[in-house]
Each structure stands twice: as C-alpha cells, then as structure tokens.
Design a protein around this nucleic acid. Structure first.
Lengths: 212, 212
DNA sequence: TACTTTTTACAACGTGCGTTGTACTTTACC
DNA sequence: GGTAAAGTACAACGCACGTTGTAAAAAGTA
C-alpha cells in the first residue's frame, strides 16, 4: 500500500479533517461514490478509518461535504479568473481569448480531481438527495455562471455584445471553451491543443459559423 | 476477450438475450456499473440470474456488450436525423433549426437511458478497458460527429458556412443544441423549453454573440 | 413421444465493505 | 507532569454481491 502520508501530526486542531476531505476528494473523483471505499479514503488521507467516522457521520455525509467544498473552492477560483479578465475589457476578442486560456489551463492541483468529481455527480445525480444537488449547484456552477452572465450583460450594455439572455450566453461560452473531450483520454492535452480549442471556441462564440 | 460474445446457446429463438440486453441497459444507465447488480438486471429482464451468465461471460462483458449496442443504435438514429435534415439544404437557418429540434426532442424510448449511460461511461472511463472505450467511441460519438462534419464541410464548399475544421464545428454545434443541463432535473423539460434552447443554440452557432 | 437445448430455482462460497465497539496510544494544553 | 480530547489498531457484525455448481423443469424439435 502506498502510504503517502501528507498529513503528519500537525499543529492546531484537527488537521485530520483537512486530510480526510482531500483524500476523499481524490478517491471519490477517481472511483465514484459506490466504488470508493472508506478504507481507500482513509489510506489516501493517512488516517485510520475510525477517524473518518469521528469526523463525519457516514459515507454519504462525507461525500456531500466533499462535493460542497470542491464546488466552493473551484467556484471561487473560477470567479477570480472571470473577474480578473473581464472586469475591464478594452479589446473584446483579445480579452476573451486570454480569459479562455486562463480558464482552460489547469489552474490547480485539484483541477482534474474537481472536474472528475463533477462527472461523477453528473452520472450519480439519481442517487444523491435532491437538496444536496441543489445546494451543490447553487454554490458551484450556478454561482459561476451568474458571475459570467453579469459581465456579459455589462458588455452588452456597452454595445460590445448582443444577447437578450446573458445566462444562456454564459452557458454557451462555457461549453465552447471547455469543449475538450472530457475523459476518454489518459493523457492531458498539450498547451497548444488547449490554446487551439479555446481560440476556436471564442471565435465561434463571437462570430459563429455563418458565411459573412 | 469480450469483443465477440457470440453465446453458445444457439438455435431456435433466444429472445432472452434481447431481454437481458434491454434490462441491463436500463439498470446500467440508472445505477451505473458498480451499483448495478446482476440480480437487478435479471429481474428487470424477467430472467433468472443464471441465464445472464449463460449468455455473457461476466458483468464486465455484459456491460461492454450493452454500451456497444447502445452506441450503435443511438448513432444509427442520430445519423438518420442528420441525413434527413441536411442532405438537401435550401434555407440554412431554417433547416438547421429543424435539424436541431429533431435532434433534441426525445427520439425513442431508450433515448434517456442512452444518454444516462453515456454519462456513466463518461464518469467511469477510468475503470473501463481502453480498447472498450475506443471501440465505443468509434461506433458511437465519433461516427456521428464525422457524419455531421461531412455535411458541414459540404455546406462550407457551397459557401453557406465557413470553417477550416468541420469536425470542431460539428462538436460546437452538438454542444450548442444539447446544452440543456444534463441531469440534475427530475423532470424532463417541456417542448417549448427545448425549442428555445435549440433556437438559441442554432443562432449562436450561426452568428455568435458579437455586436454586428 | 423421446430427445436435446435452454431456463430456472436454489444453495453455496468467497469477498469486499459500511459501520460500530473497545481498549490502547498519542497529542494538545494548562 | 497530568488530564482530556483526538487518533489508532483491531476485531467483529451483517449484508450485498459476483460467480459457480447442480438438478429439476420447460421449451423447442424430430
């Protein structure tokens, strides 16, 4: 067994909880809810299985805590990118392009884990309590989409864009700049491939495919 | 060695095999691979569990047979829609719109099950043999996308569209007309909601969001 | 009817896993 | 150092599940 003990005896109170959440995120993202075992999670966290149950009521509770935190963190990072690139827009196409690049490039260590977890949620939605899904959507995807929609709305008022439904436009923009095939690939795409995809996505978002 | 699952039970009518495949599709799509139990599948199929093992080597083999057939059937139906609407295009926007509507409306009984299964594959890709995923992609999504790309290419040659990468354009079109939020909703969207989504998607595909 | 093939019910084995109790050890804090 | 809280090892329970064997029944075929 790979005893990757990242969390040795730490100061303060309950650094164990952090380790459990991180380990659980990794395992849930990789294996999905039903495959993920508490043993695997506790091993990944460098913690005894009993400690997991001292911090969380049961597997379902741990899962909901994990997806909630993952959504919160990822949303914060994504909103930060949105704000940084779209707060002041001078050259629309160039600024959107930089935004798309920053968006699509791996932003953090748990970047892949987060999106793998989203896929798991997406597939497992039928077995997750509706309130948990609603809460997750609210603190995660919906919040981000609204943040982007607000900026698109401002850009529309400035006459740079045109749309009567900024939320839908935000969804379209997300789809177009994230269009790299989700999984299926064992290898992560190169920077150039990502850049090509983002470029094509932004162009499509701005100008579409109709002949001029 | 799960590629060719020609069962030994030969001769006569083995309608059981059909029932197993159908039941397994329903259960795998609803519960995912690891949650789905052979008992549940055989119950759904109206068959004893032993019969399942008389037709398929094991759970993994059954799963691969199911996803392969589901991909094949869905791809055939989708390609049929593509051909019907894009073989002869007179009014680009109107024809694309009708195509999008036909695409997004539930096409068959196993429509929902198929896309739920796609979500499961998408999430479980890390636990499915690479050859199985490649084969599935080839008979399913890639084949469909190439079919659409071929038509977009023809439309480009006719001067109705512009793109130097028809495959990517096909992907973008798919994303834009399928942008209804995948799961999360217990209720299926109304026809009007689907129509609105398709309309917005087609408009975005053709003209984008840049101010004219 | 007699046969062959297919299906079924049933039991059984092994295993993995969620979860809990318990007694022991480590850590945090005064 | 001493006390309380947190963490650990370990065992155990119960259950669900994949898979196989077997003998009886059903269905198809001659």
């Amino acid at each position: 067994m790979t005893s990757s003990d990242t969390g040795r005896p730490r100061g303060g109170t309950s650094g164990k909880r952090r380790a459990i959440l991180d380990g659980a995120l990794a395992v849930f993202a990789r294996d999905g809810y039903s495959r993920a075992s508490i043993d695997a999670i506790s091993a990944e966290a460098g913690v005894s299985t009993r400690t997991v149950y001292n911090h969380f009521t049961d597997k379902a509770g741990l899962f909901q805590a994990v997806i909630q935190e993952s959504a919160s963190r990822a949303a914060a990072a994504q909103i930060e990118i949105i704000e940084r690139h779209l707060r002041k827009v001078t050259d629309l196409e160039a600024d959107l392009m930089e935004f798309g690049l920053a968006w699509a490039m791996p932003m953090a260590a748990d970047h892949d884990a987060h999106f793998a977890l989203v896929r798991q949620i997406n597939a497992d939605a039928g077995h997750i309590p509706q309130e948990a899904i609603d809460a997750w959507q609210e603190t995660g995807p919906l919040r981000v989409r609204r943040a982007l929609a607000a900026h698109l709305s401002r850009l529309t008022e400035r006459g740079l864009l045109r749309t009567d439904d900024p939320e839908r436009a935000a969804l379209h923009l997300f789809l177009l700049i994230s269009s790299v095939n989700p999984s299926y690939h064992r290898v992560t795409p190169s920077e150039k491939e990502i850049a090509d995809m983002v470029t094509a996505g932004i162009r499509a978002f701005l100008y579409g495919y109709a002949a001029r």
